[in-house]
Design a protein around this nucleic acid. Structure first.
Lengths: 347, 347
DNA sequence: GTGAAAGCGCTAACAT
DNA sequence: ATGTTAGCGCTTTCAC
């Protein structure tokens, strides 16, 4: 193994000087720098990251916690983080929190113990106080993505769920929909609450309130979409549009509607949220709100990199637009689900 | 910061004894172990991974290279790696190779420089000789997933593309299809060649050769599927089934067929490969071959963990089945694309 | 501008 | 079964 000693000997200088060259800090004369660079190239020297890390207390690794790397949504976010980190010569170590507070806590502690220079956190739970204390005492800067206010965060990237839901609802209203069914996520999530505010604001513009539409809460998954849509049909509520909590919920709802012989968007319109991987592939292709997750991951990483470089970011909170993506699942409001159509549901 | 010195002082033992407890190697009396564990808990001691790594030359980090973490296919693979690693108390550091030899080389070197204990490699290119030399001289064990034979690999996990394609083709043949169009991937990939062998074997069982069907090569993406399907329709070849190189290609082909007013599976059947995230969501849902990528990632990680623990794996090469997933896009062979249907294509 | 010296926190011979 | 000792490869004062 080639060490800094070999390089210094070969170049005829001291280790300190070599160190100054590879870490690019301190003054080194051009002549010696050239000599050292040549020695490095000839010997194929690559600095030992462990030794550097131990001594300097920096690893050039950024830690990231997402809900689950295996899911396309978070994979894209991780992709954004990695691209930004790579551009700054850093790597990203990822741990999954699985929307579970204990797992999230373990993930954070592990990343800190791995000497991550900073943390990118997408959590589904508040940070446990003992974990917050570990973060503080290790003086690890944190940038959060989405979610609540975290007291340990030095900066935050947020996706504008409020305006996203507002625009989605306006889009439905503009197509004449008044009887809307919202298959919402759980109220424990800030995203859910933000979206609900957006929906309320849009309804208000038409003199409507949240009570005037159909709202049901459940999980952000296909099963809820399927079951929720069936319950809606059975309820007799004459919906002309379903606004799904996310694209998975939309996919489930679509399935239930198809099974009941109800056509989208002819009989009922369907709006999603996320612009997930399959949104384009549904039939009809799904009109939805795009959450720019890759961009969010990249922005958060860049924010953290600035902080690590000693530049406090000029804005500690960045909010990204969640734009409407018009596809084929929303149309002009039909008469609403009529009794005849609902009768198809008879088991 | 709490160090091993603080713990040893608190417990009234030497640092070595504490080290033996945290590394769980060597003999320590029950009495002292209890004392030490108590001291660790009271002080909230967490070992410094850099110092351990520097001294012991092990990091408990496994390095993984995939084509692109941001894509659902590889995200699932990474998920499998992480789950297996976590169960063994290790983390996974991921780098993307973007199917580019220079990027793959950089990724591998970076992971080695980060003192990864071992490497999990899913590559699209041969390993450059200088990189192979770095791997060898660092004595880092490598487990590959898919792809070619890599001389540096200590073990390999492979997905049985041959049998997958064989079964897929048999399934089409069993449904009466004889005029099949295969929209294949590029011949530089081993996977492609394996699948072609599988198709040939299945055809042979019915007295057919590869020359008896329609084959076109392109990229593994939706665009190729769309363009390839259009070219097929224009060619006048009376296909009763399209076998797509993967599910993305299938999605593109499906779009082209729909635009041409050709129904699946009534007018033509469609077979995919991968069982990617959107396969279920297509209409009709896609009959395809499932590549168990999460499982492959997990098995590879476990193989590597065994090697790292000093147990040479009993089998250096594991092949996983790629089973047929029957959905709705394959039906009984119709008359084939007739002239009338092809005329719909007129621009 | 450069070198000498002192460790970062830990592990692994070796001795007992 | 436990302690003593000697570094791992690097960075960073501090002199000069």
């Amino acid at each position: 193994m080639v060490t800094i000693n070999d390089v210094s000997r070969r170049a005829g200088v001291s280790r300190s000087t070599v160190s100054r060259v590879i870490a690019d800090n301190g003054y080194v004369s051009d002549a010696k720098r050239k000599l050292i660079e040549a020695a490095i190239a000839e010997l194929g020297y690559r600095p030992n990251t462990m030794a550097r890390g131990l001594r300097s207390n920096r690893s050039n690794i950024i830690g990231g916690v997402v809900v689950d790397v295996a899911s396309p949504f978070y994979a894209q976010m991780v992709g954004g983080m990695q691209a930004a980190a790579r551009a700054a010569g850093k790597s990203v170590l990822i741990a999954s929190g699985y929307a579970d507070q204990a797992a999230e806590s373990r993930a954070i502690i592990e990343l800190i113990d791995r000497s991550c220079d900073g943390l990118l956190l997408y959590l589904e739970n508040p940070i446990r106080e003992d974990v917050a204390e570990i973060i503080r005492s290790s003086r690890t800067p944190v940038v959060t993505i989405g979610g609540d206010e975290y007291p340990v965060a030095r900066a935050a990237v947020r996706i504008d769920n409020y305006t996203g839901a507002l625009e989605a609802t306006r889009h439905l209203l503009a197509h004449g929909h008044r009887r809307i069914a919202y298959l919402s996520g759980g109220l424990m999530y800030r995203d859910t609450r933000d979206r609900l505010r957006g929906i309320r604001a849009a309804l208000q513009e038409h003199g409507l309130a949240l009570d005037d539409i159909y709202v049901e809460h459940g999980d952000f998954d296909e099963r809820f979409g399927f079951a929720g849509a069936r319950r809606l049909l059975e309820s007799g509520y004459p919906a002309t549009a379903i606004f799904a909590g996310d694209d998975d919920v939309a996919a489930g709802a679509l399935l239930a509607l198809k099974e009941a012989g109800i056509r989208v968007p002819d009989d009922i319109s369907l709006m999603g949220f996320d612009d997930n991987f399959h949104a384009r592939h549904l039939t009809p292709s799904l009109t939805t709100i795009r959450q720019p997750v890759g961009e969010a991951g990249g922005l958060a990483a860049n924010l953290l990199i600035r902080i690590l470089a000693g530049h406090a970011p000029e804005q500690a909170e960045i909010t990204i637009d969640a734009p409407l993506v018009r596809r084929d699942s929303v149309g002009i409001a039909a008469a609403g689900l009529r009794r005849r159509e609902m009768s198809k549901l008879a088991r």
